[in-house]
Design a binder for these strands. Structure first.
Lengths: 232, 232
DNA sequence: AAATCTTTATGAAATTTTGATGCACATTTT
DNA sequence: AAAATGTGCATCAAAATTTCATAAAGATTT
């Protein structure tokens, strides 16, 4: 369940700026959508649920400040405000109304993009560790942030060495990792040559992770060389 | 030692600016603390655990960018960067290095304060935008505003360290938190390695919070690694 | 004086290490 | 060609080690 693209909603009445942002954002790989008034903007936030809003303060139908406040009544979505007015008072008002950032026109695209990344970075990592840094194979899922391995959704306990070993194999997924390399990463440089440890622990991993440990589908032995995690 | 005030750490080598910020911040009701070099700043972040960092990019001993990157290796604390350089390239670099905001000198206090409020607002709210005032697991409820823990509705007393420890586990709910991480957050950086303290206090927490302390359902041990608060 | 934090001690639990056994395959010997 | 030998691997399970839980006594702080 990975959401394909990050989506940005631009609420801006001036067509040239809109076009410009559309070009920039799409070229950066974002999903772009636009609204030309505050009313339309708020509706689109509700219906499209974008990941971030770029809002011009000078809209024809209503004050951008009001848009910010109303959005903040029900959503924490990051709002980056653009404005022609650079007075400190304006900035403070907008930020206190709930905006996450404030850029004065004319602004640089690079800066706008960087500030958008800042806003996104937070929503990506803030919510209780739901960052998608997981690795899957077979019916096994490894969540590196939680340091948690599960099989068919059921939590599974790995010892420190088992976990380190599996992590290393995942790091080089698909490629052969030599005995010494594995030993170095999981035990330390001084364990070079102790391939027996590997056999013991690979057997344990297979017992915990493979449907049929005797005929492993993922934790593959490369005789004389090392081991390899086969990817689907 | 329940930290009632919001604390701000200013890392800045120029004395006039430091004095100025100290005045402003304390008058606004913030706890103020300062560092005059990058090294000292990073140490103070670790030991004092401020709620927000204001960092001057032009430090004498090391590049402010480097400070930002190093802090980001272990803490999500909001960083607001101050810089004399207003080039777009500098802004993008700092923001991508992990800064949350970038102000060009000379800056207005009101704007700085507003941007600080934005940063703080975010750390206080969860992904749903609700102010994270309580957390529940099992029959336990933690109220962060009142700094009050209750079990089955009945108030329960925790000592400062017990509370800090529990708060940290909640902050990373669902994830494994390493011994050293917990020690750093609850005791301070210099207690790294004193895992014994953790055992004593985890036992106390379990006695107070778990139905069956000997077989904890929520305060889970991850042998050799740390502890984890299991979420329902 | 009371509460909290630190230290010490002890048994239990989990993990790592070690040793033993059997299998499969290839090579060498008979 | 068959038998013997050797090597690398898988597996099991006991021994050794490390880590953990818990109680309780001493020290420190409030």
């Amino acid at each position: 369940m990975s959401k394909s693209k990050v989506s940005v909603l631009v609420i801006e009445d001036e067509a040239p700026i809109r076009r410009f942002l559309k070009m920039t954002l799409t070229s950066q790989g974002y999903d772009f959508s636009e609204a030309i008034s505050g009313q339309e903007g708020m509706l689109k936030v509700a219906s499209e649920k974008p990941d971030i809003v770029i809002l011009d303060l000078g809209l024809p139908d209503m004050d951008g400040l009001e848009v910010t406040k109303q959005l903040r009544e029900w959503t924490p979505i990051p709002i980056i405000v653009l404005s022609a007015r650079g007075q400190e008072k304006d900035k403070v008002e907008a930020l206190d109304a709930g905006a996450d950032d404030y850029l004065t026109k004319p602004f640089g695209v690079a800066e706008l993009m960087a500030r958008a990344r800042v806003a996104l970075r937070r929503t990506m990592t803030n919510s209780n560790g739901e960052t998608q840094s997981t690795f899957k194979f077979g019916d096994v899922e490894v969540d590196f942030i939680k340091r948690q391995v599960s099989r068919n959704g059921e939590e599974l306990h790995l010892t420190p060495i088992e976990y380190k070993l599996l992590s290393t194999l995942i790091k080089y997924a698909g490629r052969v990792v030599t005995h010494n390399h594995l030993l170095r990463e999981a035990w330390g440089a001084e364990y070079s040559g102790e391939t027996h440890y590997l056999r013991v622990y690979m057997a344990q991993l297979r017992r915990k992770l493979e449907k049929n440990p005797a005929q492993p589908k993922y934790l593959i032995t490369e005789p004389g060389v090392g081991y390899r995690l086969k990817v689907d």
